[in-house]
Each structure stands twice: as structure tokens, then as C-alpha cells.
Simulated scan of single mutants.
Amino acid sequence: MKISIITSCFNREATIGQAIESVLSQDYPDIEYIVVDGASKDRSLEVINRYKDRISKIISEPDKGMYEGINKGIKAATGDIIGLLHSDDFLYAKDTISRMAQEFERTGADFVYGNGLFVDPDNTDKVIRNWMGGSYSKWKVRHGWLPLHPTCYIRKECYDRYGLYDESYKIAADSDLLVRFLYEADLKVEYLNEYIVRMRMGGLSTDSARRKKMWDEDVRMYRSHGFSPTLTKLQKMAWKVPQFISAKLKF
């Protein structure tokens, strides 16, 4: 079973190397690693090229945002399963992909998700949010619950059948795709109760300056799926509260 991992990068010279190394250090033997750089203006591409002999495909050209970059990676992927690793993040352990592959083989799932940690951007040992995925149900999705996007590994045939990321969203395209796949489609979904990724706090959806745009996009997205938009957005926010409490109690 080949697993394709896609990293979309723009101006992340400080963190892209750690992301790449966390993939290259995996013990799973059949990984296709695709890095899509949106014509970074810093030294990101220079860092990426240090690993070019071990990266399956490098795409470097201007794009209109992260989701266009991810879509390019999906279109270029040849794996059975597709996962994402953002350029600020890194895989939790060296056997993370092996564990994910075992779960697909054990269950025959179309979609597997797990747990993730949000960490301090300067001290990645300091946990800010402890995102435990929890069990899956369409009822929960209807009421604002979604798994942590970078913990989601999905069969490529699902993208072929249900579509890629909607690039009209600049922040909420991941939520839109998850609602399509987890609520509107009838996929075999499994929860792997293990940590998959460490994510630095910050980024598109966690930057305070972008929260208004995130609100507007989430409301538009939920409305497009026939949900009560404002109520579902508030419910989505409520699901996050235990993550901060758990991080303080556990770490």
C-alpha cells in the first residue's frame, strides 16, 4: 500500500526542513512524498532542494493559496492513500505512517483520522491544545465536530469520486471537504486513537487577524451544506474548549 504525503509550502524556511525530515525518517517503506512550493520568496525552496534526492516530487510555481497547492499535490499523487503535512508541522513519531497503514489494512477503511497536538511555535515540547479525535458519527459532524485535518488520511479514490478542495475558500476549504466526505458521502470511517502530528500554533485558521474571515467562510460553508450556519459555527467552537483544558491537565 503506497501512501502519498503532500506538503504545501510558502515562505516557511524556518520550519519546512523539520516537516520534511519527519517524513523522511518514517519507517514505513512505501511513501511517496510530494512537496508543493508556491514560489516562495524566502529560502524555502533552497531548504527543500537539500532533500531533493529523497523527495518523490517537487513542484515549485506560483499559486493562489495553500489549497491550490494541495490540489496540485493530490493530482500528482499516485498512492493508494493520501495524507497532508503542513509546512509548520511534523509527524508525531517515526512509526506514525506505519501505524496508519496498519489501520487501513486492518479495517479496510476509506478514511482514517487520529489525534494531534498544537504546540508552542518556539517550544514544540510545550502543548497548547490536546486534540483528541474521538469517535465518529454523522450526528457529531452535523453539530460542528470535525477531526483535525492533518490527522486525516483518505483513499485517493475518494478524492476522485467526491472532489478536491474548493479553492474559493482561503481558510475553510478543509472544513468543507471534511463535511462533504464525513457527512454527505457514505465512507467507511475509522478513528485511530493515537497522536499523528504536532502542529505549531498559528497558521491560517489560528491567526487572530484572520478570525473574522474564518467566521465568514465557515458560515458560508455550513450554509452551503444546508446546516444552520451560525449555530453550527458556535457548536464547532464549543468542541474546542476541552482541548485547551485537557492540554493544561495532561501536559
Rank of each mutant, 00 (worst) to 15 (best):
T151Y: 09
P150M: 00
E157I: 09
V141D: 12
R129H: 03
G133S: 05
H149F: 12
L146T: 05
R161G: 01
S135Y: 10
T124K: 00
D166A: 07
G133A: 11
K140M: 15
L146K: 06
K126F: 04
S168H: 13
W139T: 08
I154K: 07
S137F: 06
D125F: 04
Y153Q: 08
W145C: 09
Y162D: 05
R155C: 08
D166G: 01
D125E: 14
M132T: 09
G144L: 12
Y165A: 00
C158Y: 04
I128Q: 06
Y159K: 08
Y159M: 10
V127Y: 06
N130V: 11
H149I: 10
L148A: 08
W145V: 04
P150Q: 00
W139F: 15
S135D: 13
R155T: 07
G163S: 06
R129A: 14
Y159L: 09
K126M: 02
E167W: 05
K138E: 06
N130D: 15
V141P: 09
T124I: 07
W139D: 14
R142V: 00
G163V: 08
V141K: 04
K156D: 02
L164Q: 02
K140E: 13
S168R: 13
L164K: 10
K156G: 13
W139V: 13
E167S: 13
D125S: 10
Y153F: 15
R161Q: 15
P147R: 06
R142S: 08
